[in-house]
Design a protein around this nucleic acid. Structure first.
Length: 285
DNA sequence: GGCCAGGGCAAAG
DNA sequence: CTTTGCCATGGC
């Protein structure tokens, strides 16, 4: 058991922010979450104390926390400093940052993000989660925790490369099936050295990732941000595009947010997705 | 029941 | 280099 008391760290917000599709509340256990990262599983307890301070407990050893989860959740970084960089005069971004102040940019697995965000295109989050679950149950290795919890690891490239396009269509992946099929085979053959991408700059990483079928600018940027931790990557999806048109017609101030544009992107995305629906329909095309 | 979802791609303009 | 039509499926 490891207790985390970092400032600006909220599992529920990270869960809802849509960067990780294998983090979910445990049914009938208020405050409990399950997280699967590649082949690892961890159970999480979140408890809102009377004082208002959030507390998070990971059910793992101190060693596993130090060598993996701490880095995964980016807990060595002070997100209060990111919040402080928000322009005082930017009302929208202040509201968005306040709303999502517990979000962190995770360091997820590149291969997992490649498949996940290829599936994400023109799709909604709840369905994406369902598709990922199907893929894991079908092609991932079944594992059991010390306490007897059964879960499925994310399929390795070699396992997913065995899938045929017809099988994937049968699992309702739709027109994304050939993308997954070809990408898995390319990855299994080692066409792109994923580890090398950590060293590359964002621009080069993006170019390399776009060699996979089904990965364009937006999906590549998601992989750069959510796996490779390129903090200047700024995925522009339908939500972000709408906000940029509505609130930043003069252009988003990327220069000001050098080194943390991706964090701002997540604040905006989450705010547009889950924020107060008081002016939900104000955005027009 | 219709609109839309964390887009990409190839063909046209 | 910038638009356009198409691609499956189901959540809401």
């Amino acid at each position: 058991m490891v207790q985390i008391d970092n400032d600006c760290f909220s599992i529920p917000q990270i869960c809802e922010s849509g960067q990780c599709f294998r983090l979910d509340p445990v049914p009938d256990e208020p405050g409990a979450y399950e997280l699967i990262a590649r082949d690892r599983y961890v159970k999480i307890q979140t408890k809102a104390e009377a004082a208002g301070e959030g507390k998070t407990v990971l059910a793992c050893s101190g060693e596993e926390f130090e060598t993996f989860w701490k880095h995964y959740f980016d807990l060595d970084t002070c997100y209060r400093d990111y919040l402080a960089r928000v322009d005082e005069k930017d009302g929208y971004l202040n509201a968005a940052a306040a709303f999502g102040s517990g979000i962190r940019i995770l360091r997820q697995d590149p291969w997992e993000m490649i498949i996940t965000f290829i599936l994400s295109q023109q799709n909604n989050i709840s369905r994406i989660k369902g598709l990922i679950r199907s893929l894991c149950e079908q092609y991932g290795t079944e594992k059991t925790t010390e306490k007897g919890t059964v879960y499925y690891a994310f399929p390795e490239p070699e396992a997913l490369a065995e899938a045929t396009e017809e099988e994937l269509r049968g699992m309702k992946l739709g027109y994304r099936s050939p993308y997954i099929c070809k990408t898995a085979r390319m990855a299994a053959e080692g066409k792109v050295d994923l580890d090398r991408l950590y060293r590359a700059d964002a621009e080069e990483a993006r170019r390399e990732l776009m060699k996979f079928p089904g990965i364009g600018k937006k999906v590549a940027d998601c992989i750069c941000l959510f796996a490779l931790h390129k903090m200047d990557s700024f995925p522009v999806d339908t939500h972000i595009k709408k906000v940029l048109d509505t609130h930043y017609s003069g252009g988003f101030p990327f220069d000001r947010y050098k080194g943390c544009a991706g964090v701002m992107q997540q604040y905006i995305f989450y705010y547009d997705l889950k924020g107060t629906s008081s002016e939900q329909d104000s955005g027009r095309k």
